[in-house]
């Protein structure tokens, strides 16, 4: 289980995450919902231990291992990985090399081709570079293929659907299905209802806090009803909100 306890994170004198306590059980699919700017990507960065997000208070545990002093690589070794909302580009690295991690993964051409196929890219892409010549959606697809190939224990997909045409929801479902089958815990940050509905559980964030948790159906309904008419965007006052803070 991945557990975050009372995470508080400030940046430029703004509180971004204020008292974030949240748990993710092994092998489950989670949907993280919430308006723009509520702190979803921040939470992802904190779980992965990215440099920009190291200065926070509160605790993070994977089972009984404290992650607090572990760097990105050490966390990856424990099986945690992250697909960024806006994946970076690499000059001079082909998709083939990228998926194979420069040879470290020792994948066969068949395995790579299969992962590409899963994300809807043909074999012709193998020799293309992971640089600015890929379209935004293609770059996202490459990232998803890469995640599938590294077989993570816990993966955060930060908006796997952004930049991907809506016709390709099925592709994302196939990727998440494949991860689930392999036993991964998947934390999907998403703004798309259809994607959220795949989850076993959903969380709603607001103003750097966890606002509610439940089935995706419940949370989506709750979100639509309350957040759409909310006049205190990102400044939740828990007494105003029925359903209250989870956990």
């Amino acid at each position: 289980m991945l557990a975050l306890k009372r995470i508080r994170y400030e940046k430029s004198e703004r509180v971004i995450l204020r008292n974030m306590t949240i748990e993710f059980e092994d092998g489950k699919i989670y949907a993280m919902l919430g308006n723009n700017g509520v702190g979803k990507s921040t939470l992802a960065g904190i779980i992965m231990g990215l440099e920009n997000y190291r200065e926070h208070t509160g605790e993070l545990y994977l089972d009984d291992i404290s992650l607090k002093d572990l760097g990105v690589f050490e966390r990856a070794k424990l099986g945690i990985t992250l697909a960024l909302q806006e994946p970076v580009r690499f000059e001079g690295i082909t998709i083939d090399e990228y998926l194979n991690l420069g040879g470290k993964l020792r994948l066969s051409q068949d395995e790579i081709a299969e992962a590409l196929k899963l994300v809807g890219l043909s074999k012709e892409y193998l020799g293309r570079y992971v640089d600015s010549t890929l379209s935004g959606g293609e770059r996202k697809r490459v990232e998803l293929a890469s995640i599938v190939l590294i077989k993570p224990k816990i993966v955060i997909l930060d908006e796997p659907d952004s930049g991907i045409d809506i016709m390709s929801n099925e592709m994302i479902k196939a990727v998440v299905g494949k991860l689930k089958k392999a036993g991964s815990t998947v934390i999907m940050i998403t703004h798309r209802e259809e994607i959220a509905m795949m989850a076993d559980e959903a969380y709603l964030m607001c103003g750097g806090r966890l606002l509610a948790s439940g089935t995706p159906q419940e949370i989506v309904a709750f979100y639509k009803k309350l957040c759409d008419s909310c006049d205190h965007i990102n400044k939740p006052e828990s007494e105003k909100i029925r359903g209250g803070e989870a956990k």
């Binding site: 992965m48 440099e51 920009n52 690589f73 990856a76 990985t81 960024l84 991690l101 420069g102 470290k104």
Partner: peptide
């Protein structure tokens, strides 16, 4: 570029790799 490094490290490469 830190983001490039972190992307690869999040996939299990050491910093040097």
């Amino acid at each position: 570029n830190v983001k490039q490094l972190e992307t690869l490290m999040a996939k299990g490469l050491t910093e040097n790799e």
